[in-house]
């Protein structure tokens, strides 16, 4: 687990800090130096709502190193309200209740930890909408 890498990407992981392309107006997450839509290089920072819907999902029965304690867990491609797609875990949901198109919202959770003594990595996951609020 790379301490500097996790530190560099903390604002993306904690709060989905994203970019808007000044040329074409598309929202970009994760941030890039060159817009994937129009190849322009000028972007501004923006905050995402954290809302989206499930584009696809899978339940992981065989977890990669560092994630064994959470298996089985559900991964999803989430289409965010602002446009970008994101790969993330679902949480606080039973596998059998997950459906494509289901509305979800971002929460900050423990992603993994480097053994008992190393760092704890926190980041975004998605759960079913707790409630529609005003």
């Amino acid at each position: 687990m790379s301490i500097p890498r996790n530190w560099r990407t903390r604002q993306q992981r904690y709060s989905l800090k994203a970019e808007v392309c000044n040329a074409c107006g598309n929202t970009i997450f994760p941030p890039r130096d060159v817009c994937p839509h129009c190849a322009e290089q000028k972007q501004s920072w923006t905050n995402l709502s954290g809302r989206g819907e499930i584009y696809s999902f899978t339940t992981m029965y065989s977890a990669p190193a560092g994630f064994e304690e959470y298996a089985p867990y559900t991964m999803a491609l989430v289409k965010l309200a602002e446009g970008p797609m994101i790969t993330a875990q679902l949480t606080d949901v039973d596998t059998e209740d997950v459906k494509i198109g289901m509305p979800v919202e971002m929460v900050t959770r423990k992603l993994s930890q480097d053994g008992d003594e190393g760092q704890i990595l926190y980041g975004y996951k998605f759960r079913p909408m707790l409630r529609q609020v005003a």
Binding site: R5, M75, T87, Q89, L111, S112, G123
Partner: peptide, 14 residues
Amino acid sequence: QEYEVSQGISFVGL
């Protein structure tokens, strides 16, 4: 690595 693998996805999962 930074935006897929760190979330817990495997190649099979993708």
